[in-house]
């Protein structure tokens, strides 16, 4: 019972963007994809989401190829937040968040409760009646986070759900980043949700991830626990910049880049 990539490859116009990727997103785990620009992180998310069709291998959810899933049923099982969510029409924030309820039969009372709850989680309740188009970048990102959150928060669902996030914190300030990642961590701990997120901030990745997936030039370099993946060699080889690992007070490591003298 998990979201699995088997020998996954994708190429467009004779150019390989990803090849030979094997990984598994399990319920109860927060997996974080890291890697330099152009390493194929977004392509991997899109493949896992079924937005791109793999040219090699396949992606399965509960051992069923994503291609064979009914789109409505699939939407109750996994939600996706793209890197750039666009919405250029005036839409009330509350209604944008409520779009997350699309896969479920309509139930006004339940929908309202879940939407309000998600808006509280992501600190956007005060924006409820504002038009989306008037929001700042960070506010918009939080609205979309609330939307995908709502999509997976039906209390009656029994199956494990999966949340796929492409750079979900890119526009968030420090407080909101931390609150959000803690919320993710907390919700996977119930064992009913698996999350995979692309992050650029290695320190956050180390701090919150249960598993890390390190990509470089379209290939999987390493996958596993932080200790296995986040080695100074790996990071220096791939990012081509000297790094230092400073210990946290709580025993975890903190990564900082050191200027090349």
């Amino acid at each position: 019972m998990s979201l699995v990539a088997e020998q996954l490859g994708f190429h467009s116009e004779n150019e390989f963007r990803l090849q030979n990727i094997c990984c598994e997103i399990r319920p109860g785990e927060l997996s974080i994809i890291i890697g330099p620009n152009g390493s194929g992180k977004t392509s991997l998310i899109k493949l896992l989401a079924g937005e791109l069709a793999p040219t090699q291998g396949r992606v399965t959810l509960d051992n069923v190829d994503l291609h064979d899933w009914h789109s409505g049923k699939l939407a109750q099982r996994r939600a996706v937040m793209p890197q750039h969510a666009t919405l250029d029409f005036p839409f009330r924030v509350r209604d944008v968040v409520a779009l997350g309820r699309s896969p479920y039969p309509r139930d006004v009372q339940k929908d309202t409760t879940l939407v309000e709850q998600a808006m509280r989680h992501f600190d956007v309740e005060v924006l409820g009646d504002r038009m989306y188009t008037t929001l700042s970048g960070g506010e918009r990102q939080r609205v979309h986070l609330a939307r995908v959150w709502v999509q997976l928060s039906d209390p009656e669902g029994i199956f494990p759900r999966y949340l796929l996030l492409d750079e979900p914190t890119s526009a968030l300030d420090m407080r909101h980043q931390r609150e959000f990642l803690s919320l993710l961590k907390q919700s996977v701990s119930g064992g009913q949700m698996g999350v995979v997120a692309v992050l650029h901030d290695l320190s956050s990745a180390v701090r919150y991830a249960d598993r890390l997936i390190l990509l470089n030039e379209g290939e999987l370099v390493a996958a596993g626990t932080c200790k296995q993946v986040m080695t100074p060699e790996n990071i220096q080889n791939i990012y081509q910049i000297p790094v230092e690992f400073l210990p946290y007070t709580r025993g975890e490591n903190h990564v900082i880049a050191v200027p090349d003298d």
């Binding site: 899109k46 989401a49 079924g50 937005e51 789109s71 409505g72 049923k73 699939l74 939407a75 109750q76 939600a79 996706v80 793209p82 969510a85 666009t86 919405l87 250029d88 029409f89 839409f91 209604d95 779009l99 997350g100 699309s102 896969p103 999509q151």
Partner: peptide, 20 residues
Amino acid sequence: APTLNAFLLGEAEAQHLGYN
């Protein structure tokens, strides 16, 4: 109407929200 609302987010997003 609900489908069109989802479409405003983009076709990929509409698909993710479960629309054909």
